[in-house]
Nucleic acid binder design. Structure first.
Lengths: 135, 135
DNA sequence: ATAATTGCAAATGCTTTGCTTGTGA
DNA sequence: TCACAAGCAAAGCATTTGCAATTAT
């Protein structure tokens, strides 16, 4: 059983056949798929799962904190399994590749800034857009 | 003449009556309006300007670097006049208020991280979402 | 003059939803 | 059993676009 299924059980999210397939594909993906990409992969396993179900499930999983949604500079959302440690993203503006990174200094700064402004930090994102430096 | 009109001339962006009104409203706004809010204010000055023109103009101005688009966690874009110095945003999750801040440490860190990952930084954004701390 | 711009309405792309049928606990 | 989930098609919302008429330079 994959991580996402486990978390569904832990959170009391009902596991249907469709959700199991979605959980499986989502767990196996490491490239922040959008709903359409997800749906295509899912349909290779079960042709009958509709895109509406993918939308509903992805929303449910996000609201349960099991996966995370990102809105990079495109018109659509991308998803990834939640991780224990917060990380940020660098998006390659040429290839579209998404690189994850963790930076403690950034995390500290975020909190410090929010506090200075009189706010409790609830969520945050740092996105870097760049082009590869040729060696 | 406002800053946006000035920049249009500097960049060779043709100034139509409609664009002058849009530039004026955009210049006067300090709260990151979305296209609909913009259109409503514009229509108080000139009822005949269509929302399609607002969309086209806002896109043109953004591509010319005269204004900036932000996609906060809503389904729509918000705009603000470009500034000389880069700044980031803290969004009040309760009121929707947007607070701008400049933090040199953050700017330095962004560059350092991109460089470490082998990228030249082209664009970047840090968004903090928080709730006001009661005093 | 003429290439660019506008307004309108229709089209788009992503996402959500109403409704009926199916199903997991 | 029965509240919840799925499939389908239709609707929703922000944004873009084709086209004919208008306008800035």
């Amino acid at each position: 059983m994959n991580k996402i299924e486990e978390k569904c059980i832990a959170k009391g999210v009902r596991l249907t056949d469709q959700r199991k397939v979605i959980a499986e594909v989502m767990s196996a993906s490491n490239n922040h798929p959008d709903v359409d990409e997800l749906h295509k992969k899912i349909n290779k396993i079960d042709k009958k799962i509709s895109i509406a179900t993918v939308y509903r499930t992805v929303k449910l999983l996000e609201e349960s904190g099991i996966i995370e949604r990102h809105d990079f500079k495109e018109g659509k959302s991308r998803y990834e399994p939640s991780t224990d440690e917060h990380h940020d993203h660098l998006i390659d503006i040429n290839s579209g590749d998404i690189i994850e990174f963790v930076d403690k200094d950034v995390e500290d700064l975020k909190n410090k800034i929010a506090q200075k402004l009189g706010y409790k930090l609830v969520d945050h994102k740092l996105e870097l857009y760049g082009s590869k430096i040729k060696k």
